[in-house]
Design a protein around this nucleic acid. Structure first.
Length: 196
DNA sequence: GCGACAG
DNA sequence: ATCTTGTCGC
């Protein structure tokens, strides 16, 4: 990563959730900005374009990056941090989509993966809030984080301008009820409903 | 060569 | 990610 530093959690006021859905050769991106805490939506933007690249593990930015950039251009709000559905530095080359887009945005970003791309982690208690370091080739690249008791963990890693502990704490704080962090859930819903 | 593999 | 009904469990 380019920068590894704590997020000032006490100063966070707005959090953005980012997601992309693919339908019939078309990709639609959604960004939902919510208050923190509270998770009340203050802005939602959508963008679509022909899906430009196939899905290849490790190269997600080539597939989802272009339509996301279109969406970023439409955004008026200035979120303190962006949450992505995908990896940050928990990537074979340490530059997952959250890291890549963070450089583009020059803002703090966090990768929130639902399944593992690389790395391993040890025993993880069932209780919400439990975390285990995610290690790859001797490097700690993130954490497996239980955002809901007895559910599969999320895999959290810094994207840009963030460190592992504060990234994990923010994501946990953004997951009051469901496994998926609230901003990402909202973005997922917004992106999933194409308005043809 | 074999296995693994975000969304 | 997407294709898809009902169903088990809190």
């Amino acid at each position: 990563m380019i920068s590894d530093r704590p997020i000032d959690l006490g100063a966070v006021r707005l959090v953005a959730g980012v997601d992309v859905s693919v339908k019939n050769e078309e990709s639609q991106a959604a960004i939902v900005v919510v208050t923190y805490p509270g998770f009340l939506p203050v802005e939602t933007v959508l963008a679509r374009c022909p899906t430009p690249f196939p899905y290849i593990p490790g190269l997600l930015s080539f597939r989802e990056g272009p339509v996301l950039e279109e969406a970023f251009d439409k955004l008026k709000a200035e979120p303190d941090v962006f949450l992505f559905d995908g990896m940050g530095i928990a990537h074979p080359r340490r530059i997952g989509i959250a890291s890549h887009m963070g450089l583009w945005l020059d803002r703090p970003t966090i990768g929130c993966g639902k399944t593992l791309l690389c790395g391993r982690y040890g025993p993880l208690p069932d209780e919400k809030g439990s975390a285990a370091p995610l290690v790859d080739k001797g490097e700690t690249i993130g954490v497996a984080l239980r955002t809901r008791t007895a559910k599969n963990p999320m895999f959290i890693s810094p994207g840009h301008l963030a460190d592992i502990p504060t990234a994990a704490e923010l994501v946990l704080n953004c997951s009051p009820k469901y496994r998926l962090p609230e901003p990402i859930r909202l973005a997922h819903n917004a992106a999933g409903q194409f308005g043809q």
